[in-house]
C-alpha cells in the first residue's frame, strides 16, 4: 500500500488532483438540475484542465519564464566575449532553468476566453429565467414540452 502510494501517486500527484477536480466538475454538469450549478461545474472542469497544463510546465529547480537580468548582462556566465570585434556576445540561456512558457501562454488565453464564454452562458441563463421563470432543468423541459403540445 505504502509503496503504491510512493511509486504511483506521489510522482504524479498533480495529475491525481486534476482528475479529482475534473470529476467534481463533470459530476455537477451531469447530475445537477440547476442551470447555474451546471455552469459552476463547467468552470470547475475548466480549472482542472488549466491545472493540468500549468503543472506540466513545472521543472524542478526552475524559475518563472522571464530571463534573468544577470544572464542578460552576461555576468552569470564566465565564458569570454565573442571574438568578432565590437559585437556584444548574446547571452547563453539554459532552458532547464526556466519553467516551460508554452502551457502558460495557452492557459493565459484560455482563462480569458473561459470568462468570455461564461459571460455568454450567464446571459443565456438570464434569458431562460426571463422566459420560463425557473432555472431548474426539468421544469424548463416540462414547460417547453407543454408549449409544443399546445401548438
Amino acid at each position: 500500500m505504502l509503496s503504491f502510494f510512493q511509486e504511483t501517486i506521489v510522482p504524479h500527484f498533480n495529475f491525481w488532483i486534476y482528475v479529482v477536480i475534473m470529476m467534481i466538475g463533470l459530476w455537477s454538469v451531469i447530475a445537477k438540475n440547476n442551470l447555474v450549478k451546471k455552469l459552476i461545474g463547467l468552470s470547475i472542469f475548466q480549472t482542472a484542465i488549466l491545472l493540468l497544463y500549468v503543472s506540466l510546465a513545472v521543472k524542478e529547480g526552475a524559475t518563472i519564464p522571464v530571463i534573468e537580468s544577470q544572464v542578460l548582462a552576461g555576468s552569470a556566465h564566465t565564458e569570454p566575449p565573442a571574438a568578432e570585434g565590437g559585437k556584444k556576445a548574446l547571452p547563453v540561456i539554459n532552458p532547464d532553468g526556466y519553467a516551460n512558457p508554452l502551457p502558460h501562454v495557452l492557459m493565459l488565453t484560455a482563462i480569458v476566453v473561459g470568462v468570455a464564454t461564461l459571460g455568454v452562458a450567464l446571459a443565456l441563463t438570464q434569458m431562460i429565467y426571463k422566459d420560463f421563470g425557473t432555472l431548474e432543468e426539468d421544469e424548463v423541459l416540462r414547460k417547453i414540452k407543454a408549449l409544443h403540445d399546445d401548438v
Binding site: P65, I67, L72, I93, P95, Y98
Partner: peptide, 21 residues
C-alpha cells in the same frame, strides 16, 4: 518551448518569454 527559451531574447530582445510567444 526549448526553442522559445533559448532564442526569444536573441529574436526579440524581450526577457519575458511568455509575452513574446
Amino acid at each position: 518551448s526549448r526553442y522559445y527559451l533559448e532564442n526569444t531574447y536573441r529574436d526579440t530582445k524581450v526577457p519575458n518569454v511568455v509575452t513574446a510567444v
